Amino acid sequence: MSLPSQRREQHDRSAVTVLGLGPMGRALAGAFLAAGLRTTVWNRTPGRDRELVVRGAVGARSAEEAVSASALTVVCVVNYDAVDAILRPAAVTGALKGRTVVNLTADTPYRARDAAAWAAGHGVRYLDGAIMTPTVTIGTPDAILIYSGPEDLYREHRSVLDALGGTHTFLGEKICRAAAYDIALLDIFWTAMSGFNHALAVARAEGITARELAPFAAGIGAILPTIFSEVAEEVDQGTFSGEGNPLTSAASTMAHVIHASEAHGIDAGVMRAAEGLARQAIGLGHGAEGLHRVSELLRRAAALHKSRQD
Rank of each mutant, 00 (worst) to 15 (best):
V74H: 07
D114M: 06
D84K: 15
A71M: 09
V77W: 12
F170D: 02
Y80L: 04
S148N: 08
V75E: 00
A117T: 11
V75N: 07
Y154M: 10
P141D: 02
Y147D: 08
A143F: 07
L96E: 04
V74S: 02
R125P: 01
A90V: 11
I138N: 04
N79H: 12
L153I: 10
A69T: 01
L72C: 07
T108K: 09
D162C: 01
G121I: 06
A163R: 08
R113K: 13
A130V: 10
A143I: 08
L87K: 05
R113M: 09
T100R: 12
C76H: 11
V78N: 14
D162Q: 13
T167A: 09
A120M: 12
L145C: 09
E151T: 06
P109L: 06
L127P: 06
V75Q: 02
P150E: 14
L161M: 14
R113D: 07
S148H: 04
A90F: 07
I131G: 04
D152Y: 03
A71D: 14
G139V: 03
V101L: 09
Y110E: 05
S148C: 07
T105R: 04
F170W: 06
H168G: 09
E151Q: 15
D114Y: 01
A95T: 14
T133N: 00
R111L: 13
E156G: 06
A112D: 02
I131V: 15
G139L: 05
V101K: 07
H168M: 11
R113E: 13
V77P: 14
I146S: 13
R88P: 09
D142Q: 15
G129S: 11
G98T: 14
A90H: 12
L153S: 05
A130P: 13
R111S: 11
S70V: 08
V124S: 11
D152F: 03
A85Y: 01
V102L: 05
P150M: 02
Y154I: 03
L127F: 06
A116C: 05
V124H: 12
T140M: 04
D152A: 15
I138C: 08
G129K: 11
R99Y: 09
V124Y: 11
D114F: 01
E156K: 14
A120Y: 06
D162P: 01
D142Y: 13
R155W: 03
I146H: 14
T73N: 12
G165W: 02
N79W: 07
D128I: 04
D162G: 03
L161F: 08
L161A: 08
P89K: 01
P134N: 09
M132D: 05
R99A: 07
A91R: 11
N79R: 05
L145D: 01
P134T: 03
D84N: 12
G139D: 02
P141R: 05
L127K: 03
Y110F: 01
V75G: 09
R99E: 09
R111N: 10
S148D: 12
Y126N: 00
A85P: 00
V77C: 13
S148G: 09
V160E: 03
D128K: 07
N103W: 05
L127Y: 06
